[in-house]
Every structure is written in C-alpha cells, then in structure tokens.
Design a protein around this nucleic acid. Structure first.
Lengths: 334, 334
DNA sequence: ATAGTCGATGTAACGGGTTACACGCAGCTT
DNA sequence: AAGCTGCGTGTAACCCGTTACATCGACTAT
C-alpha cells in the first residue's frame, strides 16, 4: 500500500502539503500542486479511509435497520437509501433486525465501534432510552419511535380511513381489519383510521379486528378463522399488502369470490399486488421517495454535525390504487 | 469516548495488559484480569474498531454487490449473506450496481479504501483484469466471472434442460426461450440447456430465442412480439421467474390461455411465482443456501488469509417445482 | 550457586492521515 | 528601516489499539 509519505517523498514536499492537496484545504502554490498531483497519479495513490476515520471520528458510513429485507416493502426503501448514500460518498450498511430489540442493540453497538455516522431505522421495539444513550444521528422510518426522534412516515390514519371508505363505496357492509403488530406505530395508526370510520356503526364488533404481524402466512390463517367465524364479512382492510395477499389466498381456499363476495384492500403498494389474481387494491406509499428522503435528512443532519438540532419530521401522502380486488360489483346488497 | 488508556489508568496497569485482556492473548494473572474487567465495565468501555482496523489493515466488513436489490431474487441472497456475516462478527455492506461496470469499479475503490475484507459479487460486467489488480478475496455468486474466481452457482445448463424437457412432457410442441442478458454466464448456460434439448428438432428456429434482461417489463414486450409472430408457440421457458411473470401477463393480454394454449416455466423459485394466477412453474434454486454458502466461503477465505489459495467452486442442484402454468392438459395435441 | 526458563507486565513504536503551530520570506505600511 | 500581514510550507503531536521487545522476579535444572 502506498501512503501519503511515499507521495510526499516523491513530490519532495511534506505530508502536510500532500494532505492539503488531497483535501483542498489551506494554500498550495500552483507549482507544488502540480508536483503533488503528478506524484499521486504516478503512484496511483489512494488515501486510507480508515486512518482518516480514526482521526476524524467519522466513517462516511450510514446504516439502515429493517426488520427483514425479504419482506418486499423494504428492498425499495433500501435501494433508495443506498442510492442517496452513495451519491453523497457514504457507504451503506444493511442490518436485518427481525424486529428483535436485542439484535438491534447488538448492531448498534457494533456500528458505533465502527464510528458509523448515522442510522435509519424501521423499528417498533427500540426503547427511547436506548436511543437517548446513543449519541448518533437517527431517523425513524415507516414507524415512529418516541416523539423526539425525527421520522419519515405517511399519513397512516388518514390513509386507513380512505381505504375503509373505499370499501364502503364499493358496497361493503361488514368490514374487518387485519392489523399490524402491537406496538408498531403505523399499525396502531392504521387501526385507528379503521375505527374512525366503522367504530360507531351498529354492526361493529371488536372481534372484526384481527392480530397480524405483516406476514402473508399469518394473515392467511387469520383470514381463514375470521371468515369462517363471521361469514357476513364482505370487506377486509389488511394493514399491508403482504397480508392482503394472504387474505386473497384464504378467500380462494374458502371459495369466496373476490371481489364479489369479499372485497380486499391492502397498504404499501408493492409490485406484488399487480400480479396476483385478482390484482390487489392498495393504499400506495411513495416508497422510494420516503427512503430517499430519510437518507437525505440523515446525511444533512450528519453534515451539519449538530446533534441536538431538532429535525423536522416528514409525512407523505398515500394514494389509493383501485384494482380488481375492490372492483365495484354490478349489483350488490345482501 | 473512553479509550484503552482510561481503562489502563483506572485499573492501574499498562495499555498492553488491557489489550491482552480484550483479546485474550498472552498471559494475565487472575487478579489483574479481574481489575481490568472491573475497570472496563465501570467505564462501559468499548474498543474503537477503527483504530483496530487501521493497525490490522482489516475491517471486519464484507460487501455484497447485486445488480438491484429490488429484483426479488436478491433480497433472499442478501439476507443469507448478512445472517452469516453478522454471525461471524462482520458488518455487511450492500451495493446496487445496476449491472454497470463503472459503478462496480467506483464501489470497489471506495471499499478498498475502507479496508473491506472481501466481496461477494453478482456481476457479468466486471472484467477479469479489474479483479486481478484487486487483491481482495472475492466470491462470484449466481454468475461466473472468468475461471479463476471462485463461484457459487447452480447447474444452470442441466436445470434448463430439465425445464424444457418438462415442457415437452406436458405436451408442448413448439418451445421458445426468453433468455437473460448477453454476457451473464447463467443466461448463456440456461440458453445452452434449452438448445441442448430442442436445437436438433425439425421445428427449431433461432428466432425462438428472444433477448431478455431479467426484468418482467422487457419480457412482457418480448413475449407479445414472439407470440404474435409465432402463434404456433405453445411453451415458453423464461430464464428467470420475473420474466416468467412477464410472459404470463403477455399471455393474458393476448387472451392466450395458460397452460392450455401456452405452458410457461421460469427459473429461480422466488415467492412471487406462488401468488400469480396461474401460479408459475419454476426451476427453484436453494437461494438462501447459496447466499449463505458464498458468505461462509468468503469468510473462511478471509480468515485463512491466504490470498492465493484456490477456492473450490460450488454448484448447487435446482429443483423442478410444478405449478399451474405447466399443468398437464387432459387432451392435447394440435 | 549460576544459568536458563517462563510467567507477568510495561514501554514505545507503529499503522496512515490530519492539523495546530511555527517559521521563513515577500510585500506593504508608515 | 521597523513592523505587520499573509502566503507557502514543514514538524510533530494526535487519533486509539496492537504488539515487538525489554524487564523483572520466581522457579527449575545442573
């Protein structure tokens, strides 16, 4: 490995001057500049980022924590964040947490030892105190964490209201909800939106709300139970698309026709919803934009280097995408 | 930040002794050990990995290069590699290359400056010389690169033969192929397998092989053209599942019934194939295992620290999964 | 008793950039 | 001419672990 001292020797200057050339700090005379640049290219010198990081205490790395990259909602987020990171010269670290608080802490510790500059995190388990002890720029994504950590989210509650209203508009009389995991702010908000619309109806029944964990399998089973126990249900709002697909499968397994006997709407807008049969209506998030924005915010936060500055949270709008699973029935009513 | 010198001072020993405790190298008396451990926990000391990396020239980081994490085949690979990395105490860096050689080189340079310990790469563009100049442990994944870089792949050619044979068995008389991108070894091998089976038939026609780039959109268009130009085609082997889904959409758009008028089989075994209608038959790769194995091999390679050691390539078996898109017709023939 | 061995521990150099501080010198002010 | 400013540059300390080498005492071998 060639070092800055090799370059200095060849250019017959001091290491300080080479460093000044590299970082374009301080004044360097044109002649010297040229000599140094020649030496650099002659030796094909590339500065050692580790040494730089050691001195600076910063590493030009950011990390993204997701529950599981195999869940199709996250790759787009990851792609966006990585694009932004690399555009700004940052290296991108990916961590799968499985929604496990222990794992999150282990990763955080390891990354801190590596002087990672900041974190974007999708989590519902990380406690606020754990974050407080951690003096690292953090942006919460998709789900809020406490109140003083900046978050990039969507208007979950309003979007959920829209979704349920849409089901009503296509003729649904008994609408159930398969919710996301306890403690996830987006799951709570989506459920709240559901309740906003149907909570006061005469038919509403708390058992119309099923636990879910954002996976298709679990939703499949939940929907089977639900539909068998309450055959009168003619609309389901799933808190994400993956669970929406699970519901479609359950309906198929029970011989319930979608959308005629059961309308289904999901949330997220993943590509998967376009290739199922029937295709899945959904409340689509601007996923790439959200991921990119979170990364931009994080990097800006890092660059301003002001750990205590308040970072404004951002909320995006969600868009209703009507597909076959909620196609208005020609003649409905029971 | 508390440093090793703080710990040394508190425990009233030298930094060397603290280092010995941390790394369990050399001999430390029980009493001293205890004092040092007490000091470490009292100060909540965590060693600085950057300093360690600088001295050692290694960073305990590995990177995975994929064309695009949004392609559903890659998240599973990434998940597997990350699991293995983190199990071994490595940090996992993800790079999206878009199959762009320039981007690959830029990433490689940046990672080398960070003393990344090794790379797993899915690439068909990286030249062998570029790799040769790079003295970093590398494992090729999914696609081979040259002949002297260890690779973890599947038996693409044989699997392709199986896929095409399966189409024949369900009654297909005219089988087309939508191939992967030029230069990708797996695309070439899969095409070769296709030709092995149908190349000598009297009906075979080179125009039955369409260019593809492993995306659904492109395959959709290619399949539209193909089916319109050659209405006699009754079977399509798509070089990956995403393109298989594109073919299904094209068939739907043209009103061709799958599997009765057109049987379709893909390659990869991504979850997507289970939720389309009809569900997509495929040659399923043991994707997680492949990713995990590549990571294990890389880390073993790094640990033995023997850059010139020959690493044995590994080839996995692919499994035919029959689904609706190739369900045997009750009474076929033209 | 003396040399040799081994365990326990400390000192200081090292890895490779960065930068505070100092110095020399040219040009300008008064 | 003395004093000041500012550019261009070099020296060396610093970031923080790691480890080669040295030291010292205790114990074993002869």
């Amino acid at each position: 490995m060639t070092t800055i001292r090799d370059v200095a020797k060849l250019a017959d200057v001091s290491v300080a001057t080479v460093s000044r050339v590299l970082n374009q700090t301080g004044n360097v005379s044109p002649k010297t500049l040229q000599r140094v640049e020649a030496a650099i290219s002659q030796l094909n010198y590339q500065p050692n980022d580790v040494a730089r990081s050691l001195f600076k205490g910063r590493s030009k790395m950011i990390a993204l924590f997701v529950p599981d990259i195999m869940n199709p909602f996250f790759p787009e987020l990851a792609r966006a964040a990585e694009d932004v990171a690399s555009k700004h010269g940052y290296t991108f670290v990916l961590c799968n947490t499985d929604g496990d608080g222990e794992k999150e802490l282990t990763y955080l510790k390891a990354l801190k030892q590596k002087s990672v500059d900041g974190i974007i995190i999708v989590s519902s388990t990380l406690s606020k105190d754990a974050m407080a002890h951690l003096d690292l720029p953090i942006i919460a994504l998709d789900r809020k964490i406490g109140t003083n950590i900046a978050a990039v989210t969507v208007n979950n509650r309003k979007a959920a209201q829209q979704a349920v209203t849409h089901l009503q508009e296509v003729g649904c009389k008994r609408i159930a909800h398969i919710r996301g995991p306890q403690g996830a702010s987006n799951a709570e908000d989506r459920m709240a939106g559901y309740i906003d619309i149907v909570g006061q109806t005469d038919w509403f029944n708390p058992s119309f709300i099923c636990e879910g964990d954002y996976t298709a399998d679990h939703a499949y089973k939940a929907a089977l139970d639900l539909l068998q126990q309450h055959p009168e249900i003619d609309g389901i709002f799933a808190a994400n698309d993956l669970m929406g697909v699970g519901v479609l499968k359950a309906a198929a397994a029970l011989g319930k026709k979608v959308p005629d006997e059961l309308a289904v709407i999901g949330f997220d807008g993943i590509a998967l919803g376009e290739v199922t049969i029937p295709t899945l209506s959904t409340m689509a998030q601007p996923t790439y934009d959200i991921g990119a924005r979170a990364a931009e915010m994080l990097i800006e936060h890092i660059d301003t280097y002001d750990l205590n500055r308040f970072v404004e949270p951002v909320e995006y709008e969600v868009k209703l995408i009507k597909r076959q699973s909620t196609e208005r029935r020609t003649n409905d009513d029971k």
